[in-house]
Computed example of a mutant assay.
Amino acid sequence: MSNEEWALMKSHAELGAKILANVKPIHLAEKLYKGALCHQEKYDGTGYPRGIKGEEIPLVARIIAIADTFDAITTDRPYRKGATFKDALAEIQRCAGTHFDPRVVPFFIKAISREFNIEQPA
């Protein structure tokens, strides 16, 4: 991927937030805006667009980040087949504390495991 393609790909968080900026009612849309804007931030501060970390990342964005990653891992892409739910949960667990909030990850894993009758990763 070229630098130009990478910059375009990274702009999706800010573009999504821009779309949501004028949605009403504002008290609900503001959380969606923050979630869209910050869902690519990483818990360890290595994400984008602002490079914020930990509790600086809005909770809604920390939740969306996990769900978005789960979808990305399990969905078939033109360049690869999607992974199993169990493998996706193991990867999310592996990234707890670096990419994802380590306090939110167990709740997501428990919910998905229960919903789809999947053995939780060790």
Score class of each variant (00 low, 15 high):
G51P: 12
I109A: 04
D87G: 01
E115I: 05
Y79W: 15
I92M: 01
H99T: 09
K18H: 13
A13N: 09
H39I: 04
D44F: 03
A72V: 10
H39V: 06
E4H: 08
Y43S: 05
A96I: 04
A72I: 09
G54M: 12
I92Q: 06
K53R: 15
P106A: 00
T69C: 10
K18D: 12
Q93D: 09
I52E: 12
I26H: 14
H99Y: 10
S11D: 08
R103N: 11
K34D: 10
Q93T: 09
K110C: 06
D71H: 14
D87W: 05
L8D: 07
D68C: 07
K34I: 00
A7E: 13
R94A: 11
R62G: 02
K110T: 08
D44P: 01
R62H: 04
T84N: 02
E55L: 11
I64N: 03
V105M: 00
E41Y: 03
M9E: 11
I57R: 02
M9N: 11
R80G: 08
T46K: 15
G45N: 02
L20M: 13
A61V: 06
A122D: 15
N3A: 13
A29S: 14
T75R: 12
A88E: 05
Y79D: 15
L15M: 12
G35H: 01
K34F: 13
I64Q: 07
F70W: 06
Q120V: 12
L15D: 06
F85S: 01
K110R: 13
T74R: 08
V104M: 04
Q40C: 08
P25K: 10
Y33V: 06
Q120K: 14
A17I: 06
I64P: 00
D44T: 02
H99V: 07
F116T: 07
T98S: 12
G45W: 05
S113V: 10
N117Y: 12
G16I: 03
V105R: 00
S113I: 10
K24E: 14
A61G: 10
G54R: 13
E55F: 12
E91N: 11
G47K: 03
T84R: 04
A90T: 07
H12P: 02
M1G: 13
H39E: 05
A61S: 14
D101P: 01
D71P: 05
C95A: 12
R50E: 14
A65P: 13
I52C: 13
